[in-house]
């Protein structure tokens, strides 16, 4: 134990120099890994802030709920729309102070606590070399032959899985149970998280995977593989957004504000697409990185506000569970 403490202290000491102010940002584990946007954003922000940006990873909301007022976070990044209600209820967050009208989201954003920094939509991804007749609409999806297999995520453990449930709710309303019934023969399996599903898809186990409209971008720009496509449905796609929030009790209020400003900056916004494989929240389409404008995106975007989602969520999940358990 003693050794562990010493080790931890040494690791800590390498980053925390005596008089440089430290901005502690809580983020999801995927975000700060060397394959996520964390490292490059840290470098860029430290160029302008004369500070030390320290990522601290973990489950954001459970962690805030456990730590409450004692939290060491100054800023929290990566809160998805399904958890903002819980995060807001902690009373730990201060207004973000940025101008929502500078956002370029496909929906109107009025929240002055949680500031979106990127977005995407739920979508089913397929490989055009193996799928001759991809579904052209959600109704088509429901009518797929049984031997076309889809892999989805569990709405009880995964954000994208939850988004799917809300998506079905938004498109079909009270007919959700019929939708799950129609899909049940096509659903190969349900995984705990997105990465397990996506792995099954890339391994060829499943023909389609529940993912994001931006997923093909990774294959296009990182692998030069243009065969992976998102099936775009005229019924609309569920909007998925990630936000950043400022902790009210921060001991670095100026730095926190500066970070939020940085989020809205051109630098941040042009980095985020290829670093996080998602769409920038405040960047006109004309300024998107090369090639990104060619990404097929839905015309119609569906979204429940956090209060609407909170009211619907439990029943929608139960409908999903009960129907697929039969």
């Amino acid at each position: 134990m003693k050794y562990a403490l010493t080790l931890a202290a040494m690791l800590g000491a390498t980053t925390a120099l005596a008089d440089t102010p430290v901005l502690t940002v809580y983020a999801g584990d995927y975000f700060t890994s060397e394959w996520g946007p964390g490292p490059v954003l840290e470098t860029e922000f430290e160029k302008i802030c004369e500070c030390d940006l320290e990522w601290s990873t973990g489950d954001l909301v459970p962690r805030l709920l456990l730590e409450r007022e004692r939290t060491k976070a100054d800023v929290v990044i990566g809160l998805t729309s399904d958890v903002t209600a819980k995060a807001r209820a902690t009373g730990l967050f201060a207004p973000h102070g940025q101008d929502n009208s500078a956002l370029t989201l496909p929906i109107k954003w009025t929240d002055d606590t949680f500031l979106p920094f990127n977005y995407g939509h739920t979508a089913f991804i397929y490989d055009e070399t193996t799928m001759d007749a991809p579904p052209a609409s959600f109704d088509d999806l429901l009518a797929l032959p049984d031997d076309i297999k889809i892999v989805i995520q569990d709405p009880r453990t995964s954000i994208s899985g939850l988004a799917l449930v809300l998506w079905v709710q938004a498109v079909y309303g009270d007919r959700s149970a019929e939708v799950w019934d129609a899909l049940s023969d096509n659903i190969l399996t349900v995984t705990k998280d997105w990465s397990a599903s996506y792995g099954l898809f890339t391994d060829g186990e499943a023909d389609m995977v529940l993912s994001y409209t931006t997923s093909p971008a990774y294959h296009m720009f990182a692998e030069e593989d243009f065969t992976k496509k998102a099936a775009i449905f005229p019924e609309g796609h569920y909007f998925m957004v990630e936000t950043v929030g400022k902790i009210a009790g921060t001991d670095q209020p100026e730095l926190a504000d500066q970070f939020l400003e940085f989020v809205m900056s051109r630098d941040f916004q042009t980095i985020i697409p290829t670093a996080n494989w998602s769409l920038p929240s405040a960047l006109p389409k004309a300024d998107w990185p090369e090639g990104w404008t060619e990404l097929p995106l839905p015309e119609k975007v569906l979204f429940y506000s956090e209060t609407e989602a909170a009211a619907l969520q439990a029943d929608a999940i139960e409908t999903w569970r009960a129907t697929l358990s039969q």
Binding site: D29, Y30, S33, E34, W35, G199
Partner: peptide, 13 residues
């Protein structure tokens, strides 16, 4: 294992 999950979580199957 954490590194492996991170790779899986960033499309690098």
């Amino acid at each position: 294992p954490l590194q492996m999950y991170r790779l899986m979580g960033s499309y690098r199957t």
